[in-house]
C-alpha cells in the first residue's frame, strides 16, 4: 500500500501545490487587507449599517454574528470562505477523481492485476486524500498563524478552530465525492455532481441564514456545521454538528468500501 500511496501522492502533488497556493493565498491576502480596513473601520461600520439586515445575516454579520472590525470576525467573513468553499471544491474534485480516474482511464485493469487488494487500493487512495488535505491545512495553519500574530492579539483556540473547521468540511466533501465516484464512474460526471453539491449546499447555507422559514435547511449543509460565527463568537464547534459530520464521513466511507470491494470493475 505504501507504494500506491507514494506514487499517488507524487502524481497529485502538483495540483495539490496549486490549490494550496490558491486557497492559502486568497485567505492570507484577505487577512493582509485587514489592517488597512481596520484603520477606516468606523466609516465601514456606518456603511454596513446601510445594508439590509438580510444581507448581513446571509454572511453571518447579523446580530450576535461576526464583527468585521475584529481580526477573527474579519477572517470569518473574508478569508474563511475561501477555505471552506474553494478548499471544499478542491476536496470534492480530489475525492471525485482519485479512485474513478483509474476506472475512467481503464488503468484499474493494470492496477488490479498486481498483488494489491481492492481494500488497499481504496485505503491507499483515501490516505492520499487525507494527506493532501492535511498538507493544505497545515500550510494554511502556519501562514495564518503568522498573519494573525502580526495583526495583533492572537487567540490560539479560534485560530485552531478555523483550521479544524476547514479541514472537517473538506473531509466531508471529499468523502461524499469518493462515495459518488464508486457509483458514477465517469470522472467528469462525478466531478460536476460533487462540485454541484459544494455550490448547492453553500447556497442553502446562505438561504437558511436569511430566511427564518427555511432555517431548518441549515442541518443539511456542511457550511453550517463549521460556520464562522460559532468559531469566532462562541469559540467552539457545535457538538451536534460535529456528530453529523462524523456520521456523514463514516457512512459515506462505509458505503464506498462496501460497494468498491464487491463491484464489477468495468473497463
Amino acid at each position: 500500500m505504501k507504494l500506491l500511496i507514494e506514487t499517488e501522492f507524487k502524481r497529485n502533488f502538483k495540483s495539490l501545490l496549486l490549490w494550496t497556493v490558491i486557497v492559502v493565498g486568497l485567505a492570507v491576502m484577505m487577512l493582509a487587507m485587514y489592517p488597512a480596513f481596520a484603520s477606516t473601520m468606523e466609516d465601514i461600520g456606518a456603511l454596513m449599517e446601510a445594508y439590509p439586515s438580510g444581507f448581513m445575516e446571509a454572511f453571518g454579520m447579523g446580530e450576535g454574528g461576526l464583527d468585521m472590525t475584529e481580526p477573527y470576525g474579519w477572517y470569518g467573513i473574508e478569508g474563511y470562505l475561501f477555505v471552506t468553499l474553494i478548499g471544499g471544491s478542491y476536496a470534492a474534485i480530489l475525492g471525485s477523481s482519485i479512485l474513478s480516474k483509474e476506472e475512467d482511464d481503464s488503468t484499474i485493469e493494470f492496477l488490479l492485476s498486481k498483488p494489491i487488494s481492492r481494500n488497499r487500493v481504496l485505503f491507499g487512495k483515501a490516505s492520499v486524500i487525507i494527506a493532501n488535505l492535511t498538507f493544505m491545512n497545515l500550510v494554511l495553519g502556519i501562514v495564518t498563524l503568522i498573519a494573525f500574530a502580526l495583526i495583533g492579539d492572537f487567540e490560539v483556540l479560534i485560530w485552531f478552530l478555523y483550521i479544524l473547521g476547514g479541514f472537517i468540511i473538506q473531509l466531508i466533501f471529499s468523502s461524499i465525492a469518493l462515495m459518488i465516484s464508486v457509483f458514477v464512474v465517469k470522472s467528469r460526471k462525478v466531478m460536476s455532481i460533487s462540485l454541484g453539491l459544494v455550490m448547492g449546499t453553500y447556497a442553502i447555507d446562505i438561504v437558511s441564514n436569511v430566511s427564518e422559514n427555511l432555517e431548518f435547511l441549515k442541518y443539511i449543509t456542511p457550511f453550517e456545521y463549521v460556520n464562522a460565527v460559532s468559531i469566532a463568537v462562541d469559540k467552539q464547534l457545535d457538538l451536534l454538528y460535529m456528530l453529523f459530520s462524523l456520521i456523514i464521513i463514516i457512512v459515506s466511507g462505509f458505503i464506498t468500501w462496501r460497494v468498491y470491494t464487491k463491484k464489477d470493475i468495468s473497463v
Binding site: 502524481r11 481503464s106 488503468t107 488490479l112 492485476s113 498483488p115 494489491i116 487488494s117 473497463v267
Partner: peptide, 21 residues
C-alpha cells in the same frame, strides 16, 4: 485468494491503458 494469486500471475490486457504521465 485473488491477491495471493496475482503475485504469481502476469497479465496482458486486451486494451492497454497505462498512466500517461
Amino acid at each position: 485468494d485473488t491477491v495471493e494469486i496475482r503475485k504469481h500471475v502476469g497479465y496482458i490486457a486486451g486494451e492497454i491503458n497505462y498512466y500517461e504521465d
